[in-house]
Each structure stands twice: as C-alpha cells, then as structure tokens.
Design a protein around this nucleic acid. Structure first.
Lengths: 336, 336
DNA sequence: TTGAAAGCGCTAACAA
DNA sequence: TTGTTAGCGCTTTCAA
C-alpha cells in the first residue's frame, strides 16, 4: 500500500488489477501459469502505475547478492582503468554487477570509511587493487570472512591474489639493457605501493646479480609531467647511458626532459618504460617496455573471487610474467 | 536460524548471546542503550560467529537505495575514465556507491541486457555516458520513471543531461586555425555517437561561416594507432596545411604519420587535437587542443541526478564550453 | 489457476 | 533497558 506520491509497490498493482499479490508476482517472474485474462489486467496495471519491482526486496528473497565491489586508489590511470575493465567484463559475463569505490588516501579514516561504505551494500565479494599504499591499507582493514581478492605486482601474504610478476619482468628488462653493454641502469620509480615495488626490486636484482653499481633512485609522481625535470637532471650526468622508468608515461616525460637537456634518445641515453601504454609505440622514439596484461589480470582476479563466493577453496594466487617489448628507445651505449 | 555452513544471521547472534534480536540490532546500530553486560555478550557472539549484517535486509528497511549506476560504452579511455572518476567522487561524497556497466555494442539485446542487469539491482538512479552509439541506445531503452541523466558533447532531447559544448569549442579551435591564415582545415574524426558529432559540427560551422571549402572527412577508430595511416595519407596531399583531429590520441597518431610521410609539424602542417590529454603537452610538438573538464562534467551529472533522486524538479541540463589551449603543434601556414 | 500464509534479515514502534 | 510485535516488498510454499 502506498499513497500517490511514492513508488507503487506490488500490492498497488494487485489492487488495481483485482488480483492477489502472488498472482502479480507470477506474471512478473513467469514462475507459474496465469490465466490470460488476469495476466493482461496485471500487465495493464503495471503499465498504468509505472510499477517496477524493488530490486532490494528481490535480492532479500534471493539471498545471494550479485554485485562485486572494486576498491582502488584510482580509476583513470592506464593500469587501473584496464584492470577495472577486465574485472567488469568477467563479472558481467558471470551475471554480476560491479561497484567502484576510490580510496584517495591511505589514512585509517578514509580507508575504513570506504570499506564501511562498501560493506554496507549488498555485495558478494571485493576486489582490491593493491597497486599503491591505499590498496595495501584496504587489504589490512578488510574484515575476515568477506570474500576478497587482491591484485598487485608482487606476491604477498593475505587474501588470494592475482599478480603480474613485475619483479621478474623488470629484471628481464634491465638484463636486456645490460646485455646491450650499458655499465649500469638508472631508475626513475613511480610511487611505490610499499617499501619497495616489484619493478624496483627487479631492477636491483639485475644489477646486483652482475655486481654492477646501483645508482640512487629518482622519484616521480603518477603525473607524466613529473618525469620531465628528472629527465633534465639525468641529462646533466655524463655517466647516465640507460634509464629504466616505472611506467611508460613517466618514461615519456623523462625522454622529453633528456631531449630538452640536449641528449638524444637512444643515441646518448636509452630509456625503457613499463606497461606498454597504448601510446608507447607512437612515441618518438617508440618505447621499449614490458607488456602488462592488466585486463587479463582483472579477469583472473574475478575468477579467483568467484570460486570464493561459491564457497570452493580458492587457490592462493594466480601469477603471470609480463613480456618484454623491444622497440627503439633502447640501444647499445655509444662507444666511449 | 541457519545451519553451520551458511552465513550467520542476526537470530544466530541473538541466540548465542542469550538476548533478543532487537537487542542485537541495537548494539549494531547504536540506536538505543544496551546494558554493558549484554552488549559485551552480543559483541562476543558477533565476533565468534563472524557475523556481518546483511546489507540487503538493511536496504529493504531503509527504503532508498544508495547506489547509482553508470552505464558506458567504455571505462578506460581518457574521457570516459575521467568522467567516471568525477561521478564516483561526487557520489562518494554524497554517501552513494557507484556501479559500472559496460555496453560493448549498440545492438538491442546487448543494450537491453545491460539495462536489465542494472535495473535488477537496488539503484537510486542511472548516469549514461552518451559519448558513442551505445550510450545513445541505452538512453532510448531506459524505462520511464527511473531517475537518469545523460552525459554528452551535445545537447539533445531526453533525460536531463550534463553537456560539454563540443560544438562551440570545436568551432573556436577551427576559427583559431583559420585566423592564422589557413585556407581550410581538414578533419579526422573519432567514431561519432550519432550522425554528426558536436566536434564535427563545430568544425563545419567554422568553415561554412567563412565560406571555406569543406574537405572530406577522414575516419579514425578510437585506437590512437589508427591516426598514423591517415596522417601518412594527409602527408601526400600538398594542399593540406591544417588538420583538426577528433581527440588528442588520434592527433598523436596523425602527427606520427605526417612526420613519417616527410612533413614537419607545425612547419608544413598544423595539427590540433581535442580533450587536453595528460600527454598532450609532453608530445612533440606539444599539442594545441581544447581542455575538456570531464571530471567536472561527471560531478555535474551526479548533482543533476541527485536532484531527481530527491524528487526535486531537475533542471533539464547543465552545459559548459571547454577552453582552447594553444601550444606548438599549430602555427601559421608556410608562405606559399 | 488462484489466494492465504509464511518467511527472507533486518529495524522501528510499542509496551513492559 | 529489554522483549514482543509489525512491517519493509517481494517470492515461495501450501491448500483450495
């Protein structure tokens, strides 16, 4: 029952059609046969009242929610956006809806607020993008018992996770640079998700394994522009012949800075990125990088989540190694 | 009541704590005082059973859902991702969660399927990104009575909408090119959302207003790479001195094609983009473009939706004109 | 084929 | 402060 101003409910339809509530429900769900006569009256009443069934009430009866939540520090940067795309696609194919919640900072109030908001909704499980400190905090503050998976570039203890082995990939990339004859490789990192990121660890691994000097790390922000001054600074050090950047966008800024600083790329300095951004090949010079299948990562994460939701014992993680993509921004060092 | 395997419900907690169901509810919501003694027993039971209240049941009692749905043809391209970011941020601040549903094609089954999935969830309203034919179809198939707003680059009949006046902005940009002395301006468009996009209309407006020749339109896809062959083709036409591209990413591809084809930019050919992509300034040459405040657009869209959800009479639309950003990829034509 | 009754898990109103 | 009773809007028995 309801007055004229609020949404009509099923009882309004039943009354208007002169039938019982279950009969209305039957024509709605098609669960049982309804005589043609009543069926039409119900349909007409639905139409006239502009009635739409309450998804909330249906969900209550159905039991299992069909929505999964993504919690992320960001939605629009390349890696994040592609990962979200992968989760959404897999979820949609499985009949799930996806919600997105951004956690802007990693302080406890923000994190708990976001987690609380998410848990106050009817969700079947949570996917956490653990690409940054916010994601790491979110995983820490997740109550036990909630189906959850995390996505990151490095394998850790915690809930089941889908990971891209960034450490192995970074090592492969830096090995490639060293193989070409570079004495060492400088590193511009993006904001790390913890003390040390997989990308940075892989870089260090490769240098240490060959007993090379490990240069000081330069810190960029997520903004591609932040690479520019760092590139300019690198242009001033004559010993810099190779730079490994935390991602392609930063690499673009670094290249610009180097060129503005009078260096040629890759003639004077080789620059490598990470991710294989859609613009990496169009850049001048086309960037040598590592292809990350973020969308596939999202898909695998959802699969992992689904096994948990279905109460099956979930595998602890699902890992793949990204693949080196050789283009023109890297070359052998100029003969000294 | 429930057996050991399924999620515990409030009655399980009440029984375990030796109190009534409403008492458990009281400690959960803090709606009324509970004696310290019982309070602790309830808390302990909650802890032991790993009980978490059902968001669905709470939502049913609460009445109004606190989730808004975004329906979009895409989530990861720049404009889409930024718009979604704006909606999410505004929604979060208002205490709403957002869900995301991608509609991959504009055929009726896909569209109806997506709309159906969204409406089967407890949502308060819908934001449709009408940047492409999928979005246009979604708006057509939305049942009446559901609070909804659309977001697009051109004002149209339909639900309340937040629009960036792309037509005016494109016209301003093309006027800028003509003012510099170009005879006419060629156009590479991105896939239009309808017969003719605001960007294309604005381009045409500017040319027609001055009685200039309107060259044939070149069609790119959303993939930046698709601009490259078009740029190469344009390099072969000696009469091409200025190109207006549907977005910055395509412009980057076009620049690459032109340069590979032997032209200098902007020396031989001026190229302008649209959107002010984060990499537009870093590109070589830095792109002259139009700044689109996508995130702000998303914020305004949510505000529009909120007035509808609250039952206030919503303004029909909210429009702003993007702003011209002059950089180096555009110059006066070389003296013939 | 249909309606009456029960119940999904929770909160709110009402007594005690 | 606490428990009993209703009720959110719907689907699903169970009889008729």
């Amino acid at each position: 029952m309801s007055n004229a101003t609020s949404r009509p409910v099923i009882s309004d339809v039943a009354r208007a059609a002169g039938v019982s509530i279950p009969t209305v429900s039957r024509v709605l769900t098609g669960a049982a046969k309804v005589s043609e006569d009543k069926r039409e009256r119900v349909l007409r009443a639905i139409d006239e009242l502009k009635y739409r069934p309450s998804a909330t009430a249906r969900a209550l009866v159905a039991g299992q929610p069909t929505m999964v939540a993504i919690i992320a520090g960001n939605t629009s940067r390349f890696g994040y956006a592609e990962t979200i795309r992968g989760v959404e696609q897999a979820a949609r194919e499985a009949g799930f809806l996806v919600s997105i919640t951004v956690v802007e900072t990693s302080d406890p109030e923000t994190v708990d607020g976001a987690v609380g908001t998410v848990l106050s909704q009817p969700i079947a499980g949570i996917v956490v993008l653990k690409f940054d400190p916010c994601g790491v905090q979110v995983v820490h503050r997740l109550p036990p018992g909630v189906p959850a998976v995390s996505i990151s570039g490095i394998q850790e203890v915690g809930p089941p996770q889908a990971v891209l082995d960034e450490r192995a990939a970074a090592r492969e990339l830096v090995d490639h640079l060293l193989d070409l004859g570079h004495e060492t490789v400088h590193h511009v990192r993006v904001p790390p998700s913890r003390e040390e990121d997989g990308r940075t660890s892989g870089w260090r691994d490769a240098l240490v394994a060959r007993g090379r000097r490990v240069p000081g790390i330069l810190d960029a922000t997520w903004d591609p522009e932040s690479g520019e001054p760092l590139g300019r600074a690198l242009a001033d050090s004559p010993d810099v012949t190779a730079v490994f950047c935390g991602n392609d966008e930063i690499a673009m800024g670094v290249v610009k800075g180097l060129v503005d600083g009078g260096k040629s790329v890759p003639g004077d300095v080789s620059v490598a990125g990470f991710d294989d951004h859609p613009l990496a090949r169009l850049w001048n010079p086309p960037l040598t990088t590592v292809r990350q299948d973020f969308a596939g990562l999202g898909t695998r994460a959802f699969a992992l989540l689904l096994t948990q939701i279905n109460g099956e014992s979930a595998p602890a993680f699902s890992s793949t190694v990204p693949r080196l993509v050789v283009r023109d921004s890297v070359d052998r060092p100029r003969r000294g």
